[in-house]
Structure formats: C-alpha cells, structure tokens
C-alpha cells in the first residue's frame, strides 16, 4: 500500500519506497479552474521542501506548486504538456506533476494525512 500525504498548500505526495509522486489536490484544481499550462522542472533538479517545484496556470492566474519534500526530480509528467486539462480531470491520479527521490523520510511526518487534510479543507469553506 502506498501512503498519501498532503500539504497546507494543497499538494499531495504519494510515497512508494523512497520515491514521491507529487501533484495538486482535487480541491486545488477546483479552485484554480481550467488548467491551461503546467511548467515542470528539469529532471535532475534538486528541490528543497517548500521551494517552488512547478507552476500551474489556469485561465485565471498562475500558481506555484511547492515541493512537499526535499530531493531530486527523477521524472516529470510529460503528458501535461499536451493536455494540461488532465490536472482537472484526474488531479489525484494521471494528473500528477513530478516524481522525486526523497532525501529525508522524516520530512513526511510534517505533512497531513488524509483525515487531517479533509478537515483542513472543510475549515477553509
């Protein structure tokens, strides 16, 4: 079983071994509206937790996506280049942004689990 964690900036991270798959939550894609462009980092880039990892542009505005954990980008979702709307269609699945090799597994402890994130989002409405 993989484990999903969430940030208060509405990123999700699915952990399998020391590999993190990162995307934005369904709540985030709904708030953004139609996604028209996603700018992804180069494979090999080192990103620290909390730093900008990607930019997602909706019809309305550009929003930064922050890395939930520190590590090296090992893969980016190139499908988003041709069909950025994939983020709206399946934000938690095929609309993932990047995969990172996690440097410090302890960083995951600072993130929210599903229940905490759910109550966090409910508190926003």
């Amino acid at each position: 079983m993989s484990e999903i964690r969430y940030t208060d900036q509405h990123e999700w991270v699915r952990v399998e071994g020391d590999i993190a798959t990162i995307g934005i939550t369904d709540y985030a894609q709904e708030q953004l509206g139609d996604v028209v462009y996603v700018e992804l980092p180069e494979v090999g880039t080192q990103i620290a937790a909390g730093d900008e990892a990607a930019v997602v542009e909706s019809v309305k505005a550009a929003s930064e996506v922050y890395a939930p954990v520190s590590g090296e980008v090992i893969e980016v979702n190139e499908d988003l280049d041709g069909s950025p709307a994939g983020v709206n269609e399946d934000a938690m699945g095929s609309g993932w942004f990047i995969k990172m090799k996690i440097e410090d597994m302890d960083e995951l402890d600072k993130l929210m689990d599903e229940d905490s994130y759910k109550s966090f989002v409910e508190g926003l409405d």
């Binding site: 509206g33 139609d34 028209v36 019809v59 309305k60």
Partner: peptide, 12 residues
C-alpha cells in the same frame, strides 16, 4: 459572478 459551474474555458 466570475464563473458558473460550466467554468471559464467552456463559457468562453
């Protein structure tokens, strides 16, 4: 209203 359920892209 900034958008309806249809969304900005489809409204356009």
């Amino acid at each position: 209203p900034v958008q309806y359920p249809m969304g900005v892209l489809n409204e356009h």
